[in-house]
């Protein structure tokens, strides 16, 4: 009887062990020389990812403000919502770049926060918001330049490729974007010089088209 029980238990144990899922794979031993990004540079890029997400939240708040029926500037809202998604795309582009260089193999969970709170949520006018947007872009540009500095000044390793990517893709977009906003501020300002209510109303419709 005892042996029967033992056999039954053994059979159960086998059944249980074969039913258990094999969920994890053991990592392979592989060469690491190809991973050549320096830690200080990686940290700086990671920081920039947070900056881009912060900017995206700021634009989201602008979009929300101009959607309010008491403000009712759908053109401005549309423009700012688009900018919010663009900033998010920048963050994702930087993540993809780090992944391409073999980074972010671990400690991914702390890469971005759960919540970025917008610094401002109301604006007195469309003009005010455009000026804030231009200042925000200028500060992002400066921060990208700081990343470039850290990544090329490293004595052990000048990260030519990242620096080329940042200047060619990111700074290019920053400068073009800044010029666009500056042009808008200028046009809107001239339209509003004599007819401020009408100027903003018409310019909003223009942004919508």
């Amino acid at each position: 009887m005892k042996s029967m029980l033992a056999i039954a238990l053994f059979a159960c144990a086998i059944a249980a062990s074969s039913a258990a899922m094999q969920c994890n794979q053991t990592p392979l031993d592989m060469p690491m020389q190809w991973k050549d990004m320096q830690e200080s540079c990686v940290d700086k890029v990671k920081q920039q990812i947070g900056e881009e997400l912060k900017a995206s939240m700021q634009y989201l708040a602008m979009g929300a403000h101009f959607s309010d029926y008491q403000i009712n500037r759908p053109g401005f809202a549309k423009m700012f919502f688009e900018s919010a998604s663009e900033e998010r795309d920048h963050a994702i582009k930087l993540i993809s770049y780090l992944l391409m260089r073999g980074e972010l193999r671990q400690d991914v969970s702390n890469l971005i926060k759960k919540k970025y709170t917008p610094a401002a949520t109301t604006w007195a006018s469309g003009m005010e918001a455009l000026k804030d947007a231009l200042a925000l872009e200028a500060s992002v540009t400066k921060k990208i330049r700081d990343v470039v500095k850290v990544c090329e000044d490293d004595e052990r390793f000048n990260d030519y490729h990242l620096v080329d990517y940042l200047t060619g893709e990111f700074l290019e977009e920053q400068y073009k974007g800044q010029r666009e906003i500056a042009g808008r501020i200028s046009t809107l300002g001239k339209m509003m010089s004599k007819h401020s209510a009408l100027g903003e109303f018409l310019y909003d419709k223009k942004l919508l088209s």
Binding site: I95, L99, G102, L104
Partner: peptide
């Protein structure tokens, strides 16, 4: 809205994990 934003970040992190070389 805020839950959506937080969840979008969480899914982004989960996605990032699967895009590493390992």
């Amino acid at each position: 809205v805020n839950t959506h934003i937080t969840r979008s970040y969480e899914f982004l992190l989960m996605s990032t994990h699967y895009a590493n070389y390992e």
